[in-house]
Structure formats: structure tokens, C-alpha cells
């Protein structure tokens, strides 16, 4: 299937990239934090679409569940608890915003310039095409990466305990 000389995959890639970049820009430039969170969720859906396009089906589902489902809900809860309004949010001065934009543009310029100097990237191996499925990923995760997997579980437990300890309302006098 061809439209204007581009294949369906290329069209989907273009549309998804456009959606992702536009919503990412709106995360940065929207005044209301709640709107920022919602735009970030849409950005994550765009990235999940990219994962599907790259045959990483399981990662796409995990990405939506973890980011859009868990992390962004956490952000939303904290914003609602703090009751932040767009009006009283302190803004940086215009000059520092412009400087930030220029620095970001220069960073992009440097990255693109460096990448243009590198050699053509070619596929190294010709393995199976279905690496994104749960079966393949599970085999790799529990054979080659069993030890890092266990370490990650300890990290998550530590983060859980740390978040509860920090977030706990202190009944006694604060030691900070």
C-alpha cells in the first residue's frame, strides 16, 4: 500500500512522531500542571505506538500500564493534593526562558552534528523477528539477566520503604 510514495509504516511513523513531539512541547509550555500531566499521558501513548511499530508489543503494553497507568496517576494525585493553580505559579523571566530554548536548540544541534559524523549503522545480527513477545523476553530476562532482575526487585522495595518513610506525617518534633 502506497500513498504519495510512502509506505503505510512510514505514514504511521510520521503521524506518531508528529503527535509525540507536539504533545511533548505542550507538556513544557502549558501553564496548568494538570494539563501538562494529561499531555504527557498522550505523549506516552505516542511512544507506545512507536513500540508497537517496532514489534515490541509487550513493552508497549507495559509502557502504557506503568507510565500512563501508574506514574502519571501518582503525579496527578500529588498535584491535586498540593492544589496548584496556574495563576500563582511562579514564572521564570523571559530572558532565562529564551536562554533555555537556545541551549536546548544547541544541544539538539550538537547531537545531530555528532550523529551525522558516525558511520552508517547496519544490522549486526539476523535473529528471530519476534523478539518483542513475552516468551522471548521472558527467556532472556530470566536466563541472562536473572541477577539484575533480583537487584531491581530490591531497589523497588527500597523505594517503597523510602517513599513511605519520607512521606509519613511526623508526630514527634522534626529532626531535619
Amino acid at each position: 500500500m502506497n500513498l504519495l510514495g510512502y509506505s503505510l509504516h512510514q505514514w504511521v511513523f510520521g503521524v506518531l512522531s508528529f503527535i509525540t513531539i507536539v504533545f511533548a512541547l505542550m507538556v513544557v509550555f502549558s501553564r496548568n500542571p494538570v494539563n501538562s500531566v494529561l499531555y504527557l499521558v498522550l505523549t506516552f501513548f505516542g511512544i507506545a505506538g512507536h513500540y508497537l511499530l517496532l514489534n515490541a508489543q509487550f513493552l508497549a503494553i507495559v509502557h502504557i500500564a506503568v507510565y500512563a497507568g501508574a506514574i502519571m496517576v501518582l503525579f496527578l494525585f500529588v498535584i491535586m493534593l498540593m492544589n496548584l493553580n496556574a495563576d500563582d505559579e511562579p514564572q521564570k523571566t523571559m530572558s532565562s526562558k529564551i536562554i533555555a530554548g537556545v541551549l536546548g536548540g544547541l544541544l539538539l544541534f550538537v547531537i545531530v552534528g555528532v550523529l551525522r559524523q558516525t558511520a552508517q549503522i547496519l544490522p549486526q545480527t539476523q535473529g528471530a523477528a519476534d523478539i518483542g513477545l513475552v516468551k522471548t523476553l521472558g527467556m532472556v530476562l530470566f536466563n541472562e539477566f536473572l541477577f539484575p532482575f533480583e537487584i531491581i526487585s530490591i531497589l523497588l522495595l527500597a523505594a517503597l520503604v523510602g517513599a513511605i518513610m519520607i512521606g509519613k506525617r511526623e508526630t514527634t518534633e522534626s529532626k531535619l
Binding site: 513531539i21 511533548a24 512541547l25 507538556v27 513544557v28 500542571p33 501538562s36 503525579f75 500529588v78 498535584i79 498540593m82 496548584l84 505559579e89 511562579p90 514564572q91 521564570k92 532565562s96 526562558k97 536562554i99 533555555a100 530554548g101 541551549l103 536546548g104 536548540g105 544541544l107 539538539l108 547531537i111
Partner: peptide, 15 residues
């Protein structure tokens, strides 16, 4: 780079 610009240009810690 959009993320980096956001870190430099905003003052709200959640953003």
C-alpha cells in the same frame, strides 16, 4: 532536547 528545555525553563518541580 524538549525535556532538557523543560528542565531549564520551568520552575515548578513537578513539571
Amino acid at each position: 532536547c524538549i525535556g532538557a528545555i523543560g528542565v531549564m525553563a520551568r520552575r515548578n518541580t513537578i513539571i
